[in-house]
Design a protein around this nucleic acid. Structure first.
Lengths: 257, 257
DNA sequence: CGAAGACTTGACGGCGGTCAACATTGGTGG
DNA sequence: CCACCAATGTTGACCGCCGTCAAGTCTTCG
């Protein structure tokens, strides 16, 4: 039903067309994505929305009539199976496109939840498509985003299919660390990660209990310390060796020209 | 080193510019992808190559200087970890783009192997990019392909993260069945799948031994029978219920207009 | 016919799931 | 300020799916 407005109902704030972030210094974190180019085309944006607590903004089965981009805060893209199992397909960080796979209108195969304190931009899909036709830079940005999403999906599949619980968590933490560093969102040696153990479990194909046990083991081995949403990487070298981490795939979104 | 020519060395056949397939009846299988549009732009294609036995045509780490599309036969896109573990990221079927995620030149994060009896087309990336800029239909085809790849990757992640061995195999078999039906490559009730149990294992995050046990169980339960590369689906209804299969994601590549 | 690879089956073990109990945290209202 | 409650985190005991190891069979191909 009221698909198009689901984001609006998330908050009373709504259409906020002067925006934090647009062309401002605060938007440097999105440098890997170049959706700045999109933001800079004012006519394409419909509105910005703000949520202040965990909110499911898109549900699997509905048709996305707009294109969304996450400006601030974290989100999840996930699928619920009929028996309640959940698989988190990707985490959305500030600057990430939310519904890249939905440029053409079709029922979504996934849901999107925003965690507390998130800001999203909403764009008109048709207008965006028209601009992509005429503006080659924008088209290349979109292609680069697609490539980056595919590279990250590959990495996620490798994590799920061929790594142990310890390796999976180590790899994901290094991914977060690298991304947040790239976007200048790290203060000191500690990183804020607003996820519950449940989120890690559902992303990594584990149970919360085993995530807990594994975090404990990693802490005992002085590799990482993740508690209360604060991640400390204690021994990056050993951690990267354990995870087999190579962050090259994370710069796949950079337009090389 | 001789990256660009790696495909040529696979076979003595090489540049074959009249082609089987181009605009011919034999090419209907690719209808979901619309790379026909690409094929129809003769200037973009560099050559066709044929392999007759399993051949690794692209290796992770090298830079793809061309874009490839699989015309006939099956292929694998996979990653090798340093300790020998392998994760198959996707299977390539006739009509599939091989290096979609490599439109911009960067080292590949995966390898590609063609199974016996495969035919690939090679395209000039720069020319293709130029055509995408000028030909909106081609651009939309590429976008549709990207969306489809992402949708299939999502499904693969769900398989790996949240399904049992039996469910994973059931789901993959139904995916093959649906794709091959869509492309008219099914004769009778039996489907030819040129994969070893090793391939299923490496795609589904299992061991060959457990794949074997699970295939046995599925056969005993009269759900599917997969032996010698021939797949028979014995009870599609129960199989779909077991796998939680919904094939909608497989038509994500269709350009709706 | 011999060798190499793929398939099959059984025995055993471990990683991670399940169940249960309890501690901790944070939010709410009296 | 504190009692209360729900969500989250923590830990232990036990179990089962799937991995490991081993032995043997079948297929293919030179």
């Amino acid at each position: 039903m009221s698909q198009k407005n689901s984001l609006m109902t998330a908050s009373a704030v709504g259409a906020k067309n002067d925006g934090l972030a647009v062309n401002s210094q605060g938007f440097t974190f999105a440098s890997t994505l170049d959706w700045r180019r999109l933001e800079s085309i004012q006519a394409v944006r419909i509105r910005q929305s703000i949520v202040t607590k965990p909110t499911t903004v898109l549900k699997q089965g509905q048709i996305a009539t707009s294109f969304y981009s996450l400006l601030e805060g974290w989100g999840l893209r996930y699928r619920l199976l009929s028996d309640g199992r959940r698989q988190i397909l990707s985490f959305l960080l500030p600057g990430d496109p939310v519904t890249l796979s939905a440029l053409s209108p079709r029922p979504l195969a996934y849901s999107v939840q925003l965690l507390s304190e998130a800001v999203v931009s909403e764009f008109d899909i048709d207008l965006m498509n028209r601009h992509m036709r005429e503006n080659d830079e924008l088209r290349q940005s979109a292609n680069a985003c697609f490539e980056r999403e595919l590279a990250m999906a590959d990495e996620h599949m490798i994590n799920l299919g061929r790594r142990s619980a310890k390796e999976r968590i180590a790899h994901l933490m290094l991914e977060f660390d690298t991304l947040l560093h790239m976007r200048g969102a790290v203060h000191g040696g500690q990183i804020f990660i607003p996820l519950r153990q449940r989120h890690l479990a559902d992303a990594l194909g584990l149970t919360t209990i085993h995530v807990n046990r594994t975090l404990r083991a990693l802490r005992d081995e002085k590799l990482i310390d993740l508690r209360g949403g604060i991640l400390s990487i204690l021994d990056r070298e050993r951690l990267m060796a354990l995870a087999g981490f190579d962050g090259a795939y994370l710069s796949a979104g950079t337009v090389t020209g």
